[in-house]
Simulated scan of single mutants.
Amino acid sequence: MRFKSKVAPPPPPVDLIPMLTVMMGILAFFVVITLTLGSEKLIEVQLPAEQQDNAPPPLPADPFIVQLVGENQVQLNGQPIEIDALKGQMEAYLGRNPENIVFLLPSQDLPYEQVMQFLGEMRSVGGRRVSLAIEE
C-alpha cells in the first residue's frame, strides 16, 4: 500500500495588476469627489481700511437695519416683514437715499452659510450698498 506524500502545494501566484487597477480606480473616485465638493460660490467681502480713531461712523437719520432672526424670519428696524416685501422696500430706500447703506444684522445662533446666502440675496438687490453688521 502506497501513501501519497503530504507535500503542500506551492502558493498561488499573486497578480498585482488587478489590485493596482482597483486602487487607481478608488484614487480617481476620491479625487473627483474632492474636486466637486470644493467648488463653492464665494461672496466678496471688502474689509474697511484701518481707522486711526476708533469711533464708528455715525448712523444716518433713518437707518435701514435688517435683522435676520431665524430661518426665513426677517425684521426691518425691529418689525417683522416678509422677504419679498423687504426687497421692494430696500429698492425704494436705496433709490431715495443714494448715499445710505443697508445693514444686515444676523442672529448669533444662525449658521454662517445661511447668513452668507441671505447677504448674497440682499446684495443682488442693493449691490455694494449692503453691509454686514455685528453687535458688540
Rank of each mutant, 00 (worst) to 15 (best):
L94V: 06
G120W: 00
P60D: 13
G70C: 05
G38H: 11
V115E: 02
P58Y: 15
M116Q: 10
Q75K: 14
Q67M: 08
V66E: 03
E121C: 00
V31R: 08
G88S: 06
E82R: 09
L76E: 01
A49Q: 09
G120K: 00
I65S: 03
D109Y: 03
P60V: 13
F103P: 00
G78T: 04
V31G: 08
P18D: 08
E99A: 13
L110W: 04
I101Y: 12
L104Q: 08
G70Y: 04
K87P: 00
G88C: 00
N97G: 02
Q75C: 07
L59C: 06
Q108R: 06
A92P: 00
V102M: 07
A28C: 13
L42I: 12
P58T: 13
L42K: 14
N97E: 09
V66W: 05
L37C: 08
A49C: 05
R96S: 03
P18C: 04
S107V: 01
A49S: 12
L59G: 03
P56Y: 10
M122K: 04
V102G: 02
P18V: 06
N100S: 14
D53I: 10
I65P: 01
V69N: 07
N77W: 05
F64I: 06
S107A: 10
T36F: 15
F29V: 01
L37A: 09
P63N: 03
A61H: 09
Q52E: 09
G70D: 14
Q79C: 05
Q79V: 12
P11K: 06
L47R: 15
F118A: 10
Q51K: 15
I26W: 01
N72G: 05
L27F: 15
I43P: 03
S107T: 05
T21P: 00
E91P: 01
E50K: 02
E113A: 11
Q52R: 08
P12M: 12
G120F: 00
N72Q: 14
A92C: 01
D84K: 10
L86Y: 05
F64P: 01
N97I: 04
I81L: 14
I65F: 08
V69D: 05
K41N: 14
A49L: 12
L47P: 01
T21G: 13
P48S: 10
A55L: 15
T34K: 01
E121H: 02
V115H: 02
D84F: 08
D15E: 07
S39L: 15
P58R: 12
A92Q: 06
L16F: 12
Q89P: 02
Q52T: 10
F64D: 05
F30M: 07
P56F: 15
P98W: 07
A28R: 11
N97R: 10
E99D: 11
V31Q: 04
E121V: 03
L105C: 06
F103I: 09
N97M: 10
D15W: 07
E121Y: 04
S107K: 05
G88A: 08
V69P: 01
N72D: 13
L105S: 09
Q114N: 05
A61T: 11
